[in-house]
Amino acid sequence: MPSIIQHWKKSKAWQRQHDALAPKPGDVAPAFELRDVNGENPIRLSDFRGQKPVALIFGSFT
């Protein structure tokens, strides 16, 4: 079973890999379609283009 240090290294490697490709100010925001916690109410980022600015708050429970 991996140790906490191994998990830490893996997480940091993931961040380095993906952060380099993350959108920066001025870039077109990557499109997505997601559903809520019940698997309902599908929403697309493009639904708001030309309508409202969007605040995306990413997170988890831990």
Binding site: S11, W14, Q15, H18, D19, L21, A22, P23, K24, P25, G26, D27, V28, A29, P30, F32, L34, L45, S46, F48, R49, G50, Q51, K52, P53, V54, A55, L56, I57, F58, G59, S60
Partner: peptide
């Protein structure tokens, strides 16, 4: 994790997107 990867969101992250669909704040 498609959206997570596209936005490098892990562990937490905030973006503001303008009405033109472009990132205003990362």
């Amino acid at each position: 994790d498609g959206v997570n990867k596209a936005y490098a969101a892990l562990p937490t992250r905030l973006y503001l997107i303008g009405v033109d669909g472009r990132i205003v704040y990362a």
